[in-house]
Simulated scan of single mutants.
Amino acid sequence: MKLLCWNIRGFGFTGRRRQLIEYLRQEEIDIVGLQETIHQDFSMHELQGLSRHQFAWQWLPSTGQSGGIFLGVREDVFSVEDMDRGEFFLSMSVTDRRVHFSWEVIFVYGPADHARSAGFLAEPKNKVERCTTPVVVAGDFNLISWASDKSSPNVDRVRMRLFNDCIADLALRHEGLGANLGADLRARKGALLDQIKVLDDLDDGQGLCPDGWLRRYALESSLMDIYKSEELFWQRRGGQNWLLKGDANTAYFQAIANGRRRKCAIPFLWDGDVLLESLEDISTHIYSFYKELFSAEPRGGVSLCADFWPLADQVSDAENADLTLPVFPEERMTAPWLRNSVKRLVRYFQLGASAATPLLQCSDRAGRPP
């Protein structure tokens, strides 16, 4: 179900009326309530041009250049059982054609003159108290529930308390920007599950007729819609919590951190046929496993013994110092440098690369010969 509640501030303006028509047609609105229409009467041509669907309409004319309420309910979705009106409200008692659920929708528009606020609140209060079915109250109350709702510091707390007391007395849930949405979904889901259970009990006993099965399918379809709404609600709620609270040391963060810790914990580990349960044994096993995995393998194959080369054939400390002398740029490619380099290479290969490599402590710094 889609409900549109809009303070249109003048139905006669072409741009706003065109925008209303786009909303109704593109979003497939089921219930529409407008406040401050500033309109005395509506012609059949105006009403039929709003939507491609058939609506049941009623309205309150404006008083001068202010006020006016307009209410419409889609007749192929709801059957309208009754209509009511007052000085500040319009209402319709409707029944959902798919699930046969009855409730009443009330649209209000509060006076801009706050001297009349007490009388305004008394009227919808009396109306709600007379209702025998669930109620949805929507509209522009021209009142605030919290001081933060007002942009200026001039807040009439007596009138604000009067409004909140009216909501509390009627046991209404103040929806605001999604408040109590989770509780509302749970209540609707519980009601649908109860109805499905009644039909299942009938099927187990005397059986269900074709109309009963159609009703059950409709209930299941509505239940799936609620499940999708719940999933979307918690997805947004989770993102909101992370956005507002983040990694602050709050109860929410501690719950998330503890949950991750439990999820990543290793309560036990198998080492072959041995079950490791203590934290110390598990840590030791994991440490040893990765130590063996990344450690160097022992050298294999054939190698020369340490005293294979005679001492006279090994590189002396003086020769090693000569081999590692730095070479300056001006000495490169000169005859003495080339001659010394050739002598060093010959000496290197005479000793044998495999035996001389551990003894030669030549570095690869730039500017030194190979």
Rank of each mutant, 00 (worst) to 15 (best):
W270F: 05
N126H: 09
F289C: 11
A335W: 07
I282S: 11
S288F: 07
L192N: 04
A168L: 14
G15Y: 09
L4Y: 10
A138E: 10
G176F: 05
R97N: 11
S66A: 15
L24A: 01
C131D: 03
R159S: 08
S288H: 15
I31T: 08
S303P: 00
R159Q: 15
L199I: 15
L208Y: 06
P310H: 12
F89C: 14
G246I: 08
M333D: 09
C5Q: 14
I21V: 15
Y287R: 15
Q240L: 14
D204Y: 08
R186S: 12
S278A: 07
Q58T: 09
S51Q: 09
G119R: 10
D140H: 11
W242S: 13
Q26D: 11
A318E: 12
C362R: 03
V73S: 13
P336M: 10
R339E: 13
C362W: 00
V94E: 05
S79F: 10
E277H: 02
L177R: 11
H53R: 05
L214Q: 13
F233D: 00
S102R: 12
F70V: 02
L185D: 06
S43R: 08
S145G: 13
A356H: 00
N241I: 12
N164P: 04
Q206A: 11
R25F: 04
L4E: 04
S148E: 08
I144N: 10
W309Y: 06
L50D: 02
S295A: 15
C305G: 15
N320W: 00
L219Q: 02
V94S: 14
V274F: 06
D225R: 12
P267T: 10
S151Y: 06
G15T: 11
R17L: 07
I106Y: 06
Y217F: 05
Y217G: 08
R347Q: 01
L223V: 04
R85A: 14
G205Q: 07
R339S: 10
D307I: 05
